Amino acid sequence: MKENLLKKLSTIVRAAVVGACASLALGACAAPDRTGQSGSADNSDVTIGLTYIPNIQFAPVYVADAQGTYNDAGISTTIRHHGSHEGFFTALLAGEEDVVIASGDEAAVAASQGLDIVSIGQYYASYPGTVIVPADSPINTLGDLAGKTVGIPGEHGANYYATRAALQEAGLAESEVTISPIGYTQQAALASGQVDAVVGFTNNDSVQMRLAGLDIREISLDPSSTPLVSASIITTHKWAQEHPEQARAVVSATTQAMNAIAADPQIAIDATKPWDTSLTDEATLTSARAVLTATVPLWIGESGHATGTQDEATWARMISFLESLGELQGRVDPSSVVTNDYVVADANADSSSRS
């Protein structure tokens, strides 16, 4: 197995150039200086920040912009991709962005630092973190990680939180596993046998590895016991309170686009192409379609219909979990970092999913 994986290594390294930055839960990567804007500068203008390079995972924003859904909701949008090494919330807090699509766990950590951060809408309905192992690995359960080496980008951020959640679910202490910071080289590290497992994301790392020819398995985290929140629609209390209708419009239009994509995935490809200029050949399009297929369930959740409504109980559990890890610098009241006040009621939604 190891020899076969090594033969794939050159392919994997090429894929990693794209894959390293291709998850909403990961850090910001360099992006081209490209923005899209409609309308004149007035109170309806909204700048939406996207925390890494153009990617199909941002398709709801691209679709809502391209199809005029934001305009129909009464807002004129500018889409802004973050630059290299830019913080998740730097531009938001500086007033350069009004809303940002970012991970809920990172938002909670920022709020613990006294920053004005609040999540106003759900972007991913479930957490995409997963443990990835070679197909012939003796690791079959999270408990089997005992005594093994697990590769993660670094001991910080979403991958690290997912790793700690996996260990907690397995009933393992961190001392029972070797956590190896390997940067964004999960594919190469797993292929070469440098690590026994990696923690990645179902709609990115797993997809890219399979496309590169790796024979892998995923050991999923139990959604009911994973106290983490992934991609969310984040803003500041100040902006939301001063622009309540615009805040509702962003959540509503973005959510509408998610459901539109679920019904017709091709519109996501079409709307993403002007932003992701790498989508020019069958190989890159195949990759984008595979990522999209894995991402749609994250948008629409078990109900099969995105509503934007956030699970406030999960946010509360996440804050307690992050506090237990020592990741929070100060006390965080869950009600201060998440609100459904800007979610427009949806008659088609499964009311049981609402908090």
Rank of each mutant, 00 (worst) to 15 (best):
Q57W: 06
A110T: 03
A64I: 10
V61E: 10
S76M: 11
S40M: 07
S126G: 06
E106R: 03
L93R: 03
I117R: 01
L92C: 06
G104P: 02
Y127D: 07
R34T: 14
Q57D: 13
L50R: 13
G27P: 08
G74K: 12
D98E: 14
G114A: 07
G68W: 06
S44R: 15
N55T: 08
P54S: 12
S112L: 08
A59Y: 03
G68E: 11
V118H: 00
T69A: 08
L92S: 02
I120W: 03
D72G: 12
T47S: 09
I79Y: 05
V99T: 12
G104C: 04
A25F: 00
L24S: 02
D136T: 06
Y70S: 00
Q113A: 02
D116L: 11
V99N: 04
H85L: 13
N71D: 10
I120M: 09
I75G: 03
G49Y: 10
E106P: 01
S103L: 08
P128F: 11
V133D: 00
L24G: 03
G87D: 09
F88R: 15
F58A: 01
V109R: 08
A125S: 15
L92V: 03
A107F: 05
Q122R: 15
T77E: 08
S137Q: 01
F58T: 00
S84D: 14
I139G: 02
G39N: 07
D42E: 10
S119F: 06
D105H: 13
S23C: 13
G121L: 07
G83N: 15
A30D: 13
A64K: 07
Y124I: 09
T47I: 05
D33T: 11
A66K: 15
P134D: 07
Q113C: 00
G74S: 13
A31T: 15
G114W: 02
D105N: 14
I101C: 00
A30K: 14
Q113D: 07
A135K: 13
D65M: 13
G104M: 02
A108Q: 04
G36T: 15
Y123N: 11
I53G: 01
Y52C: 09
T51Q: 01
F88I: 10
I79H: 02
N43T: 15
S40R: 10
V131I: 15
S40N: 10
Q67K: 07
Q57V: 13
S40D: 12
T35S: 08
E86H: 07
G74H: 13
T77D: 05
V100T: 14
N43A: 15
S40E: 14
D105W: 08
A135N: 02
D45C: 00
